[in-house]
Amino acid sequence: MSKLHIDSLTKSYNNKIILSDVFISCKKGEIKGLIGLNGSGKSTLLKIIYGAEKADSKFVRVGNKIIKNVYDGRNLISYLPQDSFLPNNISIKSLINLFLQKENRPIVIENEYVKPLLNKKNQDLSGGEKRIIEILLTIHSNAKYILLDEPFNGVSPIIKDYIIEYIKKMKLLKGYIVTDHDYENVINLADKIVYLQNGYLKEINDKKELVELGYMSKTTYNTVYKT
């Protein structure tokens, strides 16, 4: 499968550079974790890759196909936004049928967490229930690359673990770029970690670098990774 390649991506707001000459790539079977402090531009980066937000400059390509907007990226890139994006007043079963192609529907309809919700409407679900449906719909879309922006927003720990395992199980078929405000989720899930700071992306090879970069305190590092 063709690689997702992003380079020369630059974005500024009011003369402040948010993303500077960013390079990132992802291949099939890879989960790339994107971390950074609040407001560092993680969501903006994903939206630009997806084509929903304009950049000052960018080059996004999947194989030979250059992605300039969401239409170019159809069937190639899917995006899960931070907040709920499903329309209301439609049953979950209908939404699955409307969103997914026929061959991708059974796996979602038969899912243990989705099955009891099929006849409910989106607005009647809890935040966690909505989230798991949105994640499954995004993962099982026809796209080859999945961008997940804070997929664990509002989900209980047991569902969070389920989602992590589910994405790991599904990763052979697609490439993923995942971001979350909780670094532990991303670190547990991703094969490779990239850190966004002051508009620049840095690949993290050792978690200790996160302390040096000021993302994590030494105490947290010692508590979480040295015990």
Binding site: A52, R74, Y79, P81, D83, L86
Partner: peptide
């Protein structure tokens, strides 16, 4: 946010 539903299609 609902625009993203349609963008994904």
């Amino acid at each position: 946010n609902q625009y993203f539903y349609y963008y994904n299609l």
